[in-house]
Simulated assay, not measured.
Amino acid sequence: MRRRSAVLLRLAVLLPLLLLTVAPGAAGVWLNLPASGTKCVSEEIQPNVVVLADYAVVHEGHAEGGLPTIAAKVTSPYGNTLHHKEHVTAGQFAFTTTEAGNYLACFWIDSGDKGVDTSVSLDWKIGIAAKDWDSVAKKEKIEGVELELTKLEAAVQAIHENLLYLKSREAEMREVSERTNSRVAWFSIMSLGVCIVVSILQLWHLKSYFQKKKLI
């Protein structure tokens, strides 16, 4: 009984952390594609994070079997292509990030019928939201409260890694800011020095001019 109470107490304490972590990790997006052009969505993700997404053309307003086809392309922050499909009505992409930054998913209509409005549903899952917990439960033979605690432990680990990532980004930004301030200070000193030298040269030139004209 005491052990069960302790487990429930841990669950109550860690549940808010799970909500904070999972909520941003799973998102359903509805995109209205223009007749010509591209519609993109982006997500800033840190390295070593699992990303899983499903997309499909919505049936609304289209006859069965008459859906327009689309093209989909996913690129990394450095422009590497992670997924590229053409002439499809549905698809899926999955990858583990290796770069930190904005990952871009773009969609456009590539069928002949481009005059019809087309919508695409995108189910984007990141981090622990993309993990197959059913497989984990079967593999480790856990269920119920123990499975929930495993999820919470993964959530806490994800929060910890995210905090470390934010800390490193903050340190990088602070370093860049300090370098910029240092350069601005040196530039100001150099500008002041140039102004002083130019003023001295102007005084010397005027003095020489007036002496030649015998005005002084």
Rank of each mutant, 00 (worst) to 15 (best):
V116H: 04
L18N: 02
V136D: 12
L17A: 11
I70F: 05
S119W: 12
H59S: 04
R3V: 07
H160Q: 06
S182R: 04
A53D: 04
L52F: 01
E170M: 08
V49K: 14
A6Y: 13
S36Y: 01
L18E: 04
W204H: 09
C40L: 03
N181L: 07
V145Q: 06
P77G: 14
S121A: 13
E178L: 08
V194F: 15
P34L: 03
V184Y: 10
L203Q: 08
A26V: 12
G101I: 13
A185H: 05
A27Q: 11
R4W: 06
E86G: 01
A72Q: 14
L147T: 12
V50Q: 07
A185E: 12
W204Q: 12
V58D: 08
A129E: 06
G37I: 09
T118R: 03
D54G: 09
F95P: 04
E86Q: 08
G65A: 00
Q202D: 09
L11Y: 04
H83N: 11
A129T: 04
A185Q: 08
P34K: 01
M173N: 08
W133T: 01
K131G: 00
L14P: 12
S42V: 12
A53F: 07
D54Y: 14
V13Q: 04
E146R: 05
V57T: 12
G66H: 00
C40S: 15
V176P: 00
A53K: 00
L52R: 10
P16I: 11
S5E: 12
V194M: 07
V197M: 00
V116C: 01
C106K: 13
W108K: 04
R4T: 11
K167C: 10
L206A: 02
V176L: 08
